[in-house]
Amino acid sequence: MRLVRSTGSPRTPWRNGAGLTRPVAQWPAEAGLDEFRWRVSCAEIAGDAPFSAFPGIRRELLLVHGGPLTLVVDGDRHVVARDQSLGFSGDARVACLVSGGLPAVALNVMTRRGASTAAVAVEPVGRALALTAPDDGDLVVVALEAGTRLGGADEALEPFDAVWCGAGERVALGGSGRVAVVRVQPDRR
């Protein structure tokens, strides 16, 4: 299990320069944007902007702060409210229109076709939440607001701090708030 503090991840420009992103976790850890099998990042959306193209990638955008967003994916309009997600191809032409609070923050989960798949959800922490990584994959849990504490160490997680667990590892959370839960597994399609 690895704790990834949001303050330790540098913000970098999107591939197309239209926004900023902060990496959370990816595999392989040192891979570039054209080599990763999967990647989780927090995208900061400060206004209407086109999304970067990622051919060969499946994308899942989960709005976690601000918005709502309207995503125009190859001409089709989709409204995404907080804690909702939308999956689309990285090959698609995507324009993002912000119709609410700014800046909006979205968890961006990308998986390479033929290599990995991911499931994304938002869960309340409540008094206790125990999660286990898939036996053949990874688990990334991102705190979405203050109040979440990391298991036995009772260490506070700040917004957008993350815990990355490898195959079969468990994480226990307590306190309050909500977390984004990303489960990544090999693509068996």
Rank of each mutant, 00 (worst) to 15 (best):
M1P: 13
M1K: 12
V4H: 10
R5V: 15
S6G: 12
S9M: 13
S9Y: 10
R11T: 15
T12D: 04
T12A: 07
R15Y: 00
A18Q: 12
L20P: 07
A25F: 11
Q26M: 15
Q26L: 10
A29F: 06
E30S: 10
A31R: 01
G32I: 00
G32D: 00
L33I: 06
D34C: 09
V40S: 01
E44T: 14
A49W: 07
S52W: 01
A53C: 03
R59P: 04
L63F: 03
L63D: 03
V64A: 14
V64W: 14
L69H: 04
G75T: 10
G75S: 11
V80C: 01
G87K: 00
G87T: 06
G100D: 08
G100R: 01
L102M: 11
P103S: 14
A104E: 07
T111Y: 10
T117D: 05
T117M: 06
A119K: 08
D135M: 09
D135S: 08
G137A: 12
D138H: 15
D138S: 15
V140E: 03
A143R: 02
G147F: 10
G147I: 06
T148C: 11
A153D: 02
E155T: 15
A156K: 02
L157E: 00
F160T: 07
F160G: 15
V163G: 13
W164H: 13
W164P: 14
C165D: 05
G166E: 07
A167Q: 14
A167H: 09
A167M: 13
R170W: 01
G175D: 10
V184H: 10
